[in-house]
Amino acid sequence: MSGAVFAQQLVNGIMLGGIYMLIAVAFTLAIGVLNFLNFSIPGIFMVGAIATWRALENGWPWVGAIAAGLLAAGVASYLVERFTYRWMRGLDHEIPLVSSLGFLILFENLVLIGYGSDQQTFPALMPDFNIRVAGLVIGTGQLISLVLALVLVIAASGLLERTRIGRGIRAVAENADTATILGVEIHRVVPALFILIGLLSGVSGILFAMNYLQVSAFMGHEIGLKGIAAMVIGGMGNIWGAILGGLLIGLIEVLSIAFFGANRADICVYGALLLLLVVRPEGLLGGSAIVREKL
């Protein structure tokens, strides 16, 4: 492989990583604060994209359709909180995990019943042209997604670091009882966090649809599962780890396709995840930036 082609693959990997990044951050927030491996996130990703697609089909303007997608994702995530985490606080952490798998199945099959299992065409929203920089081809859609993903992740991180609700979330993350006696309203903070998780997943789903111009009931699987891999590789509960992990998974995937072929990519991606879980379960950036003591 020539240097130019290799550089192009690196660029492609980073662009793909931008998609994984947002969803990895959604996973990492749920793990870091609530110790909750929230498998409903790929479903929420899909709900956001499908709702946007439906709204567009019904002739809504772009802005309205995207708002509808975000609203649907936020509501879906709130429902997950209402029926998993809230009922099971303090119990075995595997129970909310199991319920969140239930929600994933629920969301996907409701969409299957409503709209069938076919890939639906998502209309082109962004201008489809490529930028050429120093011989590298960069898709504008992907570039916009990557930048938007980074901005959102940095905003989410700032929210956690500097705002009152962010301090509340971090307090709950470390010790829910202590947060309670300090006057943190857990019954508001936790749903707020779930809505944030839902919005991040929804944005990620809409961006995916805008880039790949299609939506389907199972569109969340591949992306969501790679998002989990990205989160673990970066370090569970660590937002910056999720960004690093997202980029790494994007790179591993693109490069393994280039070197070994498309069918081998999953072996490399999940093999890397398995290897990391065995040799360094805390992830590359180690522990949690939200809270270290939890896991």
């Binding site: 793990i31 110790n35 491996l37 952490h93 595997e94 995990l97 599962l225 989990i228 891999a229 673990v232 569970m236 069918n263 081998r264 990519a265 999953d266 072996i267 991606v269 999940y270 093999g271 995840l273 398995l274 879980l277 065995v278 379960p281 896991l295």
Partner: peptide
């Protein structure tokens, strides 16, 4: 090696293992 981890890590490790096996048979 996998059972050195527990809880969420174990669920994740078995998930990754399943994915690797499936991808291996694809090849």
């Amino acid at each position: 090696p996998v059972l050195r981890t527990s809880g969420i890590y174990l669920a994740l490790a078995t998930f990754a293992l399943g994915q690797v096996i499936q991808a291996a048979f694809l090849n």
